[in-house]
Simulated scan of single mutants.
Amino acid sequence: MAVFKFRVYFEEDESIYRDVVIKHTQTFLDLHHAILKAYEFDNKHQATFYRSNDNWQQGREITLEKYDKPYKAEPLLMAETTIGSEVRNTNQKFTYTYDFHKQWGFLIELINVAKDEDSRLDYPAVVRSEGIGPKQYGTKGLLGDRFADIEEKYDLVRGAEGFNEKDEEGEDYGFEDVSDDYQDED
């Protein structure tokens, strides 16, 4: 049974990627879940794959479900479409978009085809992770109201106090000079 290894790049920084191995008989829904798990995203939003060419231009759509939007061609459904049915060549590419409002983009490239499965793996599996992936909801979303409390307590929005700098004309930037306040206590 053929096993495909895909490199899933974060679109905004190709030094961030995850290598995912998947059986050719598994579906794009399985790949969808593997990518979300690899990047630590939740499974609450819309998503779609596109078969792609070497220039990352979008071709046939493979979608999580049929959405209320116009389609040039009837989309394939992730749950019904096997990976092997859409791989046309040894350097096949796909694009993947998750959360249509945030537009998380990933570039997927086939980097290896193996004939045999690894009995130690539960497919699909992430076999390599490079770089720190993006946070789906950002720092404020992760901390929620606690971040607002920290921001208020430490006044993170106001400039740093206790420092004074002046420009060439001697204009004060609004920071205090406290260097004279410190004395050696020898």
Score class of each variant (00 low, 15 high):
residue 45 H to V: 03
residue 63 T to N: 07
residue 108 I to N: 01
residue 32 H to Y: 01
residue 26 Q to I: 02
residue 51 R to C: 08
residue 163 F to I: 10
residue 104 W to Y: 10
residue 117 E to H: 04
residue 170 G to L: 06
residue 30 D to R: 02
residue 10 F to N: 06
residue 167 D to N: 06
residue 9 Y to H: 04
residue 85 S to V: 07
residue 91 N to K: 05
residue 179 S to M: 08
residue 159 G to V: 13
residue 137 Y to T: 14
residue 84 G to H: 10
residue 55 N to K: 12
residue 77 L to S: 02
residue 49 F to L: 00
residue 113 V to D: 12
residue 44 K to M: 14
residue 153 K to Y: 10
residue 173 Y to M: 00
residue 140 K to R: 09
residue 22 I to L: 05
residue 98 Y to D: 02
residue 17 Y to A: 04
residue 31 L to F: 01
residue 28 F to V: 02
residue 16 I to G: 04
residue 20 V to W: 01
residue 73 A to F: 06
residue 27 T to D: 01
residue 116 D to C: 11
residue 134 P to Q: 02
residue 16 I to A: 07
residue 122 D to H: 15
residue 151 E to R: 06
residue 69 K to E: 12
residue 123 Y to P: 04
residue 104 W to Q: 09
residue 113 V to M: 13
residue 56 W to S: 12
residue 103 Q to S: 11
residue 24 H to Y: 15
residue 45 H to M: 08
residue 138 G to E: 10
residue 184 D to M: 11
residue 159 G to P: 13
residue 116 D to H: 13
residue 131 G to E: 00
residue 60 R to E: 14
residue 76 L to Y: 10
residue 89 N to D: 12
residue 17 Y to L: 00
residue 184 D to S: 10
residue 34 A to G: 00
residue 21 V to C: 07
residue 183 Q to V: 01
residue 160 A to N: 13
residue 18 R to Q: 05
residue 115 K to Q: 14
residue 104 W to P: 08
residue 20 V to S: 00
residue 166 K to W: 11
residue 16 I to N: 05
residue 174 G to I: 00
residue 89 N to M: 07
residue 141 G to T: 04
residue 46 Q to D: 13
residue 22 I to S: 05
residue 30 D to P: 04
residue 31 L to M: 03
residue 104 W to G: 03
residue 42 D to N: 09
residue 175 F to D: 09
residue 22 I to W: 02
residue 173 Y to I: 00
residue 72 K to F: 15
residue 128 R to M: 04
residue 96 Y to F: 08
residue 103 Q to C: 12
residue 153 K to F: 07
residue 34 A to I: 02
residue 110 L to D: 00
residue 4 F to G: 09
residue 118 D to A: 05
residue 15 S to Y: 09
